[in-house]
Amino acid sequence: MSKTIIEVKDVKKVYNQGKPNELVVLKDIDMKVNREEMIGVFGPSGSGKSTLLHIIGCLDRPTSGKVYIEGKDVSGLTDDELALIRGQKIGFVFQQFNLIGSLTALENVEMPMRICNVEKRKAIKRAKKLLSSVGLGERINHLPSQLSGGEMQRVSLARALANEPDIILADEPTGNLDSKTGKEIINLMEELNKKGFTFVIITHDPLIAKCASRKLNIKDGKIWR
């Protein structure tokens, strides 16, 4: 198995190309992520961090350049093929949690598995296990609105782990949390990283900077080391 799990080559992202409001967000981005790394991505607001994360996570397509996930070029894939990669290889954690408000914690964690055709009984069993592993074993039937921010972020971590992905992409996971609950989430992520999950974390949080195995800075659409 190759050491490199994500490779980004000459990636460019231009919004509204050819129009007067054209915006070049990313220019010639090159980066490699190795297995079991925990990478912190830093940069000023509007520098294109989220855009890069979405491109790595197969949610968005680059204007030009290539992205390889586990050695596989994903640029030519169809929407549905990208969806399958998202479902099976990648887990997302967002600043705004992005849980489904009408579903309980358990159902939110179950959902990615049901989408990938995991049998309902198995999915529930695994969702319960994941929720107790992030310390929410008691709160599985709560709706997101009945949970605190830290608890919601634990649910989204559990959801990210649902289909046993190789890569977890987090966009300011502690951005909406106070420093104490932020610390708890960081600890959880460190633990998971030790268990072998690869992390790419966008953040402004100095605590994450401390525990990241490597830091990348984005500015003016380029990566500065």
Binding site: L59, A83, R86, G87, R159
Partner: peptide
């Protein structure tokens, strides 16, 4: 819209 977007983000295909 949001809910559907989230489902797609975590792996739901268009067909799904």
């Amino acid at each position: 819209k949001r809910e559907i977007g989230i489902m797609k983000a975590v792996g739901a295909t268009n067909n799904c």
